[in-house]
């Protein structure tokens, strides 16, 4: 094992200072992905800055009605929180659709957003991977890629983001709060993760040393209905083959707010902006839903072995949209 320094931070500032003081550091939350990657040799941090004691373990309602989730809130607690279950069911459902009970007990909100792809080539040091080692090539492109991307990939990388939670956050218009040496900032959850382009080694827009301090869900106490649905190879403890989070609100018989995000189709949760634009102001009919989803998925370019993802994502989206819309109009 490569020796590494271990620093336990008590405050956000201590954490970011420790990170800055240790080149090659990584923040350690639940460790459910980072520690695995260290065992595989994919990650070899010079230092671990343990953020588990940071005072970021709370869920609080802000004066404007939005809900702030601390970065250290465990996935299990997030999914079970009454306000989350009541107001953002897609988020609760998404978190519960991921991993296993034991992993959700250990995994954190911030860590979930930073988990790495489960692409087998990324995890195997004996094979090329531009994400792990830029410039070495992509083993998956001509290899085994049933689980890989159909949207927004590049010739450098066809990996997908594995998070269920992030898909719901993207659809819910959540924002991710960051703190770094240059201060605090907030980025939309839907834009937090990147497409691979020429830099697949960069999963997110996070800057070096920045720490996720929390996630803010917009006010939604009387807000729209939402739901998450995931298709997978077994009933529990499997990553998505495709998934969808949908937020839908109607007024005067037409869609007045909609958020749709797909999981497991791309390098990031895929916010379906074209579909949303097509639906805004439209009556929530099956035909309108089909038209909108087809517009979005027309951009898909399946690889040899993952063409099934396009109809799968389509049917998941239509199923969830249909369930969220009042039965009378569908």
């Amino acid at each position: 094992m490569k020796p590494f320094a271990y620093v336990r931070a008590g405050t956000v500032e201590e954490a970011t200072d420790a990170f800055a003081a240790h080149p090659g550091a990584r923040y350690l939350g639940g460790g459910t992905n980072l520690v695995d990657l260290m065992k595989l040799g994919v990650e070899a941090p010079a230092a671990l800055v343990d953020v588990n004691r940071l005072p970021l373990g709370g869920v609080e309602e802000l004066p404007d009605g939005s809900l702030r989730i601390g970065a250290m809130v465990h996935n299990s607690d997030l999914a079970a929180h009454p306000l989350v279950r009541d107001r953002y069911p897609a988020l609760s459902q998404a978190v519960l659709a991921g991993a296993s009970g034991q992993l959700r007990n250990a995994a954190t909100t911030g860590g979930n957003l930073l988990q790495r792809t489960r692409c087998p080539y990324f995890q195997d040091l004996s094979k090329p991977c531009n994400k792990r080692e830029p410039g070495t090539g992509c083993g998956a492109l001509q290899g085994v890629h049933r689980d890989h991307a159909v949207l927004g990939y590049s010739d450098q990388c066809i990996a997908t983001n594995p998070s269920d939670m992030a898909v719901a956050l993207a659809a819910l218009d959540a924002s991710v709060e960051l703190y770094g040496t240059e201060g605090a900032r907030s980025v939309p959850a839907a834009g937090f993760h990147r497409l691979p382009g020429d830099h697949p080694e960069r999963d997110t827009e996070i800057r070096p040393g920045e720490l996720i301090t929390g996630v803010v869900l917009p006010a939604g106490s009387a807000g729209p209905a939402s739901a998450y649905r995931k298709a997978r190879d077994r009933a529990s403890y499997a990553f998505a083959l495709a998934s969808v989070a949908v937020v839908l609100h109607l007024a005067d018989g037409v869609v007045d707010r909609v958020g749709i995000a797909f999981g497991a189709l791309a390098h990031r949760p895929w916010r379906a902006r074209r579909a949303e634009e097509a639906l805004l102001g439209a009556a929530p009919t099956t035909a309108a839903f089909e038209h909108a989803v087809d517009l979005e998925l027309a951009a898909a370019e399946p690889l040899q072995d993952n063409a099934y993802k396009v109809p799968l994502a389509r049917r998941l989206a239509l199923d969830v949209l249909g369930r969220l819309a009042p039965p009378a109009v569908t």
Binding site: R234, S236, A238
Partner: peptide, 14 residues
């Protein structure tokens, strides 16, 4: 390709 129990899917309890 499937070399761990996250990717080689034996049935889960569910």
């Amino acid at each position: 390709t499937q070399s761990d129990l996250a990717s080689y899917h034996v049935p889960a309890h569910a």
